[in-house]
Design a protein around this nucleic acid. Structure first.
Lengths: 351, 351
DNA sequence: CTGAAAGCGCTTACAG
DNA sequence: CTGAAAGCGCTTACAG
C-alpha cells in the first residue's frame, strides 16, 4: 500500500535542506570533512581539536554562514542562555523614574556581552506572576533578576521554590527563604545627606519619605532618623504616595503646613525632589537660600532641575554589574555573597 | 572490557528521571494511559482528542506538575515564541525619556498576554548590532520590533536580509527594502500645535526642533513649517542637541537671543519643553502670559511641569498595540499594512 | 480519535 | 585528537 511513498523521507540531502532554515552542523561537518562531534567541539571551546580540523571547520562555517540552532543546543544542555529581568511593580508609571530604565539597560549590555539574552517580564498582577513562574519552571530562562519594590514580595519565595537561580535587586527579603541580593546602601546614604544638611547649618530638618514598603520608603527614612534621633518633630515627615513629581509636590505642601519654619528637607528620590522644588517655589521659598533641598538617586533629572539638585548617588552601573555577576555565579552552581553598595554625596546647588 | 557498564544507559525509568528537571510528556502519557502524541495534541489545541483522554491527560499534568519544554518544542516547530525589542539608539541616556519605557512596557504586557516573551536588545555599537543579527539568524526570536531613532538605519536593512519578520517603530525607512512600520503622525501633530498657537493669538512663533535624523527632528519641524510657510524668520528655529532637559534649555536660550520678541514656542518633545520652561523662567518671561509653550508626547512629565504643559499626545498604547499586531501578522505569514496613528492636542496651562 | 515512528539539530560520554 | 551513537523532549504526518 505504500509503494508510492513520497521521495523525501530519509533523504537528508542538501536539496531538501535548502528550503529549510540555514545550514546545520551536519552540512558544516560534511564540507570540512569531519564528524559532527568535531564541529561541536570547535563550537564549544575548541579543546582537543587539531589545528587542521579547526581551520577546516572554521572555513566551512564561514562558507556556509552557519549559525548554531540554540533550541537544539538548549535541549541537550538544559540551559537557555537567557535571563529574566522581572519587574515586580505597579505597572502604570513604571518608567517614569529613569533609575529602573538605566538598571535594565546596563544589565542588558552586560549580559549581552557574555552572550546572554535579557527577557523582560512584568509581574504586576496574578496572571503575570503566574507567567513568570511558568517561565522559570519551563527552563525558559537560566535565572532571574528580580527587581522587587516591595517588602516580602511573595514572588521571591515562589520563584525560589522553582529552583531557578534568583537574585534580588534592591531589597532584602524581610522573611522567607534566603536569597542573595544586591542593594545600594539606602540607609547609609540617607544618613550621609541628613548629616550634610546639618553640617550646612540647617537646624529644622524635614523629610519627604517614599511610600512605605519600598526600599526608599523604609530605609531612607530610617537613615534620616538615625542622625536626628528623637529630635524630629511631628509634621516634619511627609510620606509621598508614589515616586512621582506630583506626589513630591503634594508631600512638600504638607510639610510646609505642618512644619512651616523648616530650613532643610531631605527628599527620598530625585523625582520627588522635582515636585518638592516646585512646591517650594510656589510658596515663595528660595532654594537653597531659605530651604536646603537634598534628593536621592542622582538620576538624569538631578542635574537638570533649577537649581541643580544636591543628591545621593546610587552606583547604578555597579549595581547592575554585581547583579549580573551574582546571578551568573548562581547559575554556575556557586554560592555568591549578597552585596551592599556604598552611596555617595553629589553636591550641586540645592544644598 | 565493558561487562561492568554502569546500570543506567537505556533505563528510561522514573528513578533516573527524578534527578533531572521536571516530568516529561512521556511521564504524563504513561500516567494518563495514552501515547505521547495524544498528550501533545491536548497541549496544542486539543482538537481530535476524546473528552476522556483529554480529562485523563489534564489530570496527569496536574498531578505531575508538567510544564512543556520549550526548547524541544522550538526545535521541531522552528519558533521560539519570543520577539526581540531592539533599541537602536545612543545608549547613554536611553531611558531618560519615558516614552520609550512606556512603549516597551506595553509591548511586553501585550506580548506576554499571548504567551510570547520580549527579549530586550541594544544596538548601540557594532558588536551589539552583530549580536542582534546573529540572534535573528539563529532563530532565537520569531520577529523583531525595531525601535529606530535614525533615518535610514542600516540595521533595518540588515535585519530584513536575515529573513525574520521586522516591524519598525516610529520611522519610515527613507530608502532600502520596504518594511511595515508603525508611527504616530508627527507631522500632523506639529501642524495641530502650530495652528493652535496661532489660534491662541500668537504672532511670532518659534520652535525648538529635535536633532536632525530623528523622527521628532524632521517631521515635527516640517509640520511647523507646513502651517507657517515662508513666514518663519531666521533665528526662530533652534535645534536641540539631544532629547534632554539641558538641551531644551540651551536651545531656548538661543531662541531668546535670536528672536527676542517671540510670543510662542513649539517644542518638539516634553522633555525639551521642561528645559525651555526653565530658560523662559530664568529670562523672566512668564508662561503663558508672555510666551505660549507647546510640547510634544504627552509623557508623564507633561502634567508635572509648572505650568502644566499643553502638548500633543502620542497614542503610545495604540502604537504598542499595532506594533505587536503587525509583527504577529508578519510572523503568521500575512502582509499587514503600515500604520500611521493620529495625534491629538491636550490642552493644559502653558498655552 | 489515537499510536508508532521519524525527525528537529545539537552535545557528550565512550572507545579508540 | 576524533568518529559513531545515544539521547535531549517534543511535534507531526501517516496509518489505522
Amino acid at each position: 500500500m505504500s509503494d508510492e511513498a513520497p521521495a523525501h523521507p530519509k533523504s537528508r540531502g542538501a536539496a531538501r535542506r535548502a528550503q529549510r532554515r540555514g545550514p546545520t552542523m551536519e552540512d558544516v561537518a560534511e564540507i570540512a570533512g569531519v564528524s559532527r562531534g568535531t564541529v561541536s567541539r570547535v563550537l564549544n571551546g575548541a579543546n582537543h581539536v587539531s589545528s587542521a580540523s579547526l581551520e577546516a571547520v572554521r572555513e566551512a562555517m564561514r562558507q556556509t554562514g552557519y549559525v548554531v540552532n540554540e533550541s537544539a543546543r538548549s535541549l541537550v544542555t538544559r540551559r537557555s542562555g537567557a535571563v529574566a529581568f522581572v519587574l515586580s511593580e505597579p505597572p502604570d508609571r513604571l518608567f517614569e523614574d529613569p533609575v529602573l530604565g538605566g538598571l535594565m539597560r546596563t544589565c542588558t549590555a552586560l549580559l549581552g556581552a557574555q552572550g546572554r539574552g535579557l527577557m523582560l517580564m512584568l509581574a504586576g498582577n496574578a496572571d503575570e506572576r503566574e507567567r513568570v513562574l511558568h517561565f522559570a519552571r519551563g527552563g525558559h530562562v537560566d535565572g532571574v533578576l528580580l527587581v522587587s519594590m516591595h517588602d516580602g514580595d511573595p514572588l521571591a519565595a515562589a520563584l525560589h521554590e522553582t529552583g531557578v537561580p534568583v537574585v534580588i535587586c534592591g531589597r532584602v527579603p524581610a522573611a522567607g527563604p534566603l536569597m542573595p541580593y544586591v542593594a545600594a546602601d539606602d540607609r547609609g546614604g540617607a544618613r550621609l545627606m541628613t548629616q550634610y544638611l546639618l553640617d550646612r547649618g540647617a537646624r529644622r530638618l524635614a523629610t519627604v519619605a517614599g511610600p512605605p514598603d519600598t526600599p526608599g520608603g523604609a530605609e531612607r527614612l530610617a537613615g534620616f532618623r538615625d542622625v536626628l534621633g528623637e529630635a524630629v518633630p511631628d509634621g516634619a515627615i511627609a510620606r509621598a504616595e508614589s515616586y512621582s513629581i506630583e506626589a513630591g509636590r503634594a508631600a512638600m505642601d504638607r510639610l510646609l503646613h505642618g512644619y512651616p519654619d523648616l530650613d532643610a528637607v531631605f527628599v527620598a528620590s530625585d523625582l520627588l525632589a522635582v515636585g518638592a522644588l516646585q512646591a517650594l517655589h510656589a510658596a515663595g521659598r528660595s532654594v537653597p537660600g531659605d530651604v536646603l533641598v537634598g534628593g536621592f538617586d542622582d538620576s538624569a533629572i538631578a542635574s537638570a532641575t533649577m537649581p541643580p539638585l544636591t543628591t545621593i548617588r546610587q552606583p547604578l552601573a555597579q549595581v547592575a554589574a554585581e547583579l549580573v555577576e551574582v546571578l551568573v555565579q548562581l547559575i554556575a552552581g556557586r554560592h555568591p555573597s549578597s552585596r551592599v553598595l556604598p552611596t555617595t554625596l553629589v553636591r550641586r546647588e540645592s544644598a
